[in-house]
Simulated assay, not measured.
Amino acid sequence: MREAKTVDLLQNDYLYCENVIKQNSASFYQAFKKLPKDKANAVYAIYAFCRNADDSVDETRDKSTQLKNWQDLYHQLQLFEKGEEISSPLWRALRDVFTRYEMDIKPFYEQLEGQRMDINFKQPSTLAVLERYCYFVAGTVGLMLLPILATENHQHLHGYAVELGVAMQLTNILRDVGEDYRNNRIYLPKDLLQMENYKQQDLQSSNINSSFISVWEKIANRSEELYELFQVGIDYFDKDSQLHVLLSALIYKEILKVVRESGYDCFQKRNYVSQENMYRLKQVVEGLTVSL
Rank of each mutant, 00 (worst) to 15 (best):
V259I: 09
V215H: 02
E261C: 07
Y227P: 02
K199Y: 15
E225N: 11
Q194W: 10
K253Y: 11
Y252F: 11
N209G: 00
N207V: 10
L188V: 03
V258L: 06
Y252L: 06
K257F: 13
A249Y: 08
L193C: 06
L247M: 06
E228L: 15
S214M: 10
D191I: 11
L188Q: 00
I219K: 00
F237T: 02
Q242W: 12
K253E: 09
S205H: 13
S223W: 07
D238W: 07
L229D: 11
F212K: 00
F237W: 06
L247D: 02
Q194L: 11
S223Y: 06
N221I: 15
W216V: 04
L229G: 07
D240P: 02
L229E: 12
K253L: 12
I234P: 01
R260T: 05
K239P: 09
K239F: 11
S248H: 08
P189T: 03
L188I: 04
E254G: 05
R222E: 07
Y227G: 01
V258G: 03
S248N: 07
R222W: 09
F237E: 02
Q204S: 11
E217P: 05
M195N: 13
V259Y: 04
F230L: 07
M195Q: 14
E261R: 07
S248V: 08
N197V: 12
Q204G: 12
L226S: 01
A220N: 03
L243F: 14
Q204H: 14
A249W: 09
V258D: 03
S248T: 07
S206L: 13
P189D: 02
I219P: 00
Q231R: 11
L256W: 05
A249I: 08
D235S: 15
Q242V: 12
S241Y: 06
R222L: 07
I208K: 00
K253V: 10
